[in-house]
Simulated scan of single mutants.
Amino acid sequence: MTADQPHLLVVDDDARLRALLQRYLAEQGFRVTAAPDAGSARAALASVAFDLIVLDVMMPGESGLELTESLRRDGQDVPILMLTAAGAPDDRIAGFEHGADDYLAKPFDPRELALRIRTILRRAAPALPQSALAAPPVQLGAHWFDSERGELRNAEGSVRLTGGEAALLAALARRAGDVLSREEIAIALSMPDAGERAIDVQVTRLRRKIEPDPREPRFLQTIRHRGYVLRPGQ
């Protein structure tokens, strides 16, 4: 185990599944810390900067949804992949609404879990320095978005984005002025099975961070029956 291996926090109240995930993910080259509930997860998060959380939704006491919402409210942008036995579309939407980056229904193939973890980590990783030909930052009113770094800033400093929010804004910024369908956005986010409502939820969350009035968006606009378009401007 080396310090440059991504460090995962696996939170699940099922001791058998927790142990299986810890062993399998370690075999896949990750450092893994396991926690049986939200309280133990909070204690771990207080002392370690994890690269990603694999989080069960249905736990006794504080649920995974409640923990995710609390972490996002406190400004923690660590990527979160939710696991749950409830795989209906509404359950998936609830995960995204509470701030999850991805969602995997139980039972699942552990190979798919590892693939999704790597996809999220690639999406969240800071970009390498770019050449002088790199795309300039995009202005969104009082905000500037650097699509190469996935960083949103304003006069007060950096604005926290989840990995999903940063990937969504980067996908739109790379094609600013073009209408992207929900299907194109899902593919750009490496979430081809996310569904239209899940994309809409991610857009709603992003608007809260870039729009002066999210109910009347100036920059991230809906094009009826077609998708979304980012229109930079002052």
Rank of each mutant, 00 (worst) to 15 (best):
Q139R: 15
S181A: 11
A132C: 00
M82I: 07
A166H: 05
I117W: 04
G163F: 00
G141P: 09
L65G: 00
D101W: 03
A127F: 04
P192Y: 08
P126R: 05
A194M: 14
L133D: 15
A173K: 06
P192E: 09
V179E: 10
L133T: 12
H98Y: 03
I120K: 03
P79T: 05
V179S: 07
A171Y: 03
I117D: 02
Q76P: 00
R73Y: 01
R182W: 01
A155I: 07
D109V: 03
R160T: 13
I120N: 02
L83M: 12
L133P: 00
A173H: 09
R123H: 05
E165Y: 04
D101H: 05
R182C: 13
Q76V: 12
T84M: 10
S190P: 00
V159Q: 10
D77G: 11
P126W: 03
S70N: 06
E151D: 08
M82Y: 02
W144S: 14
I185E: 03
A85E: 11
L168V: 11
L121T: 01
A166Q: 09
P137I: 00
L180I: 04
T68L: 06
L81I: 14
I120A: 08
A125H: 08
P192T: 06
D146R: 09
A134H: 05
A188F: 01
A167S: 14
G75F: 09
E184S: 11
A194P: 00
L189H: 02
P110F: 05
D146L: 06
K106A: 08
G75Y: 07
L113S: 05
S147V: 03
E69V: 00
W144M: 12
S131D: 15
A198P: 01
E148L: 11
D90E: 15
A105P: 09
A125Q: 13
R149L: 12
R174G: 15
T162F: 01
R72F: 07
I80K: 04
L140D: 10
